[in-house]
Design a protein around this nucleic acid. Sequence first.
DNA 1: GTGATTGCAAACCTTTTGCACGCCA
DNA 2: TGGCGTGCAAAAGGTTTGCAATCAC
Lengths: 138, 138
Amino acid sequence: MQQFIEICRDHELKITPQRVAIYQALIQANQHPTADMMFRLVKEDFPHIAFDTVNRTLLTFADIGVVDVVEVFGGPKRFDPNIDGHHHLHCTACGKIIDFKNDRCTDLEVPASITEMFKVISKRVVLKGLCADCAIEQ
Amino acid sequence: MQQFIEICRDHELKITPQRVAIYQALIQANQHPTADMMFRLVKEDFPHIAFDTVNRTLLTFADIGVVDVVEVFGGPKRFDPNIDGHHHLHCTACGKIIDFKNDRCTDLEVPASITEMFKVISKRVVLKGLCADCAIEQ
DNA sequence: GTGATTGCAAACCTTTTGCACGCCA
DNA sequence: TGGCGTGCAAAAGGTTTGCAATCAC
């Protein structure tokens, strides 16, 4: 939380009760929430908040690196409070996104032929398939 | 094209002029088009086609494996006529998606701890950053 | 002929925008 | 106090749905 306040100060953002509430909900959220999911979550502790505030705050947080906007295959944006280097499994049946850590993926070197023509900021391995629950049903 | 007809037959889909036109536009498209971009493109040869037909056909094509729906970070769905194993660069400034091939990425082994709990269908390395054009402007 | 497909329009959902009011610094 | 941030409402953009007419088989 102290860290969050510092990041806001660094970016000259005011510390408002709404931003604090959204940040707290975010670090509790575990399922790569959409803006709407975050809105419902924050509203429990902050009933008067507007959806619009939640959405704009999440975008602001993405700008300053507090959250990550993750890759999706259509549908609403999804946010990831986990900004450590990690990778994703996407279940094509239920839409769940599962984080995983793996050194072989994280240490994968981007070839020089790419870095010469493209300034790489982030790197992620994305796997599509079926999660355990959905694999059983099929 | 013969190949396309066979795939349709395999999936019991009728060969309609619309589907043929959309398929032809697709193999010419090079920039991971959205449904709307495809609609404009197809309309040149097929002025009377409805946006809806293009969109639904693309989703059907995705179902049968003729196109791939690619990962995006919000915004409209984007389709990829290139279904060979390859990887993506996403320019965060202009939104361009650039394909690249790289054996080290393609040969990356998914650890058994993942495949045991998740049925992997596809694998892709996704890099975010700045393309050459946008890197100059910054 | 029959059922899949198309075109059209409306509905739906998500995201964006403009503006007046309120609050943090 | 000044200007950023919020809440509200409307608009915009993309996708989905239902239905009648049409077309491929």
